[in-house]
Simulated assay, not measured.
Amino acid sequence: MKTEFASPERLNKSDLAVQTEAIKRDSVLGQMLDAMPNIILVLNRQRQVVFANQVLLDHFNITSIDEFVGLRPGEILNCIHSAENEAGCGTTEFCRECGAANAILNSQKNGADIQECRIIQNESLEALDLRINATRFKVSEEEFTIFAVTDISNEKRREVLEQLFFHDVLNAANGMIGYTELLRIVDQDQVPGVADQLMTMHDR
């Protein structure tokens, strides 16, 4: 299978089952993941899901992680690019700029990474703004990645509104400064007109 970014390799079902059982046997880890308020996935070196916390099960209204085992994050989140290549999530040219894919790869190399990403969902074209915390850890001497998802859509919308607000404030302030400068140089009989314009801007 071809790839334009990350490795396309996947483990087969039997190997995935062994990894899933290894995670399930660690009851402390399972309890810790279930205590987290956001969606947590446990990924293997091939970026496939082998375990997830209760928040994910509740979000998708399912009772077992089995139907998601072997998938990659973008395939679960229905990313518009996840089915473009036969190899799936992480293997298209668009994945080079994906914060989720890069966070996973960087955590595998460096131990941990935090990145933001925007996922456009297939069919609905709805945008998900997410912050991804990826952390490498070991179970039975095998490396995995804890992939924590935080929805920051509201935070991003607030940032846009703040930028628009400050843009309007700066425009108004610059306009008032301009009219104030005019008051200093116009003829005396023109002052009332400039003052009226200044008051109009003030009333806005």
Rank of each mutant, 00 (worst) to 15 (best):
Q54C: 02
I65E: 15
E97M: 10
L43K: 09
A83L: 02
L29Y: 08
A83F: 01
G90Y: 14
I80L: 05
L41S: 00
G99H: 12
F68C: 06
D34G: 05
I40L: 13
H59I: 00
T63P: 01
P37C: 13
L41A: 02
C98A: 07
V55D: 08
V49N: 11
A52K: 00
R72N: 04
R96T: 09
C98N: 07
Q48T: 06
A100H: 09
C98Y: 09
S64G: 15
V49H: 10
M36D: 11
T91K: 11
F68Y: 15
A52D: 06
L41W: 05
E75H: 03
T92G: 04
I62V: 15
E97K: 13
T91L: 10
G30N: 14
G88S: 04
A52Y: 12
P37I: 11
A100F: 05
T63I: 14
E93I: 09
G70V: 04
F60V: 08
R45F: 05
I39S: 11
F68P: 02
F68T: 13
Q46E: 04
C79R: 06
D58W: 06
R72H: 06
G30K: 11
Q48G: 08
N38P: 00
G99S: 07
M32V: 15
D34A: 05
G74M: 01
M32F: 12
C98M: 01
L71Y: 08
V42C: 08
Q31Y: 10
L57Q: 01
N78K: 14
E84H: 02
E97W: 07
R72K: 02
Q54E: 15
N85H: 08
E86P: 01
C98L: 02
N61C: 11
G30F: 03
E84L: 06
G74W: 01
V69M: 12
D34F: 15
I80N: 05
Q54S: 14
T92H: 04
I40Q: 14
M32I: 15
N78I: 08
N85S: 02
V55N: 13
L57E: 05
A83C: 07
V50E: 10
F60M: 14
V55S: 12
L33V: 04
A35M: 10
N85P: 00
E84Q: 07
C98K: 09
C89L: 09
V49M: 13
H81G: 00
I80P: 00
D66E: 15
T92Y: 10
I39K: 07
S82D: 02
P73V: 03
A87K: 04
R72V: 08
L41I: 06
V49F: 09
N44E: 06
N38W: 03
I40M: 14
L41R: 01
F51N: 15
G74N: 03
V42W: 10
N53V: 09
Q31I: 08
L33Y: 00
L57A: 04
A87I: 02
V69I: 15
F94H: 14
L43M: 04
D34V: 05
G88L: 01
D34C: 11
P73G: 02
L33I: 10
G70F: 00
C95K: 06
N44W: 06
C89V: 05
M36N: 12
L43E: 06
A52V: 13
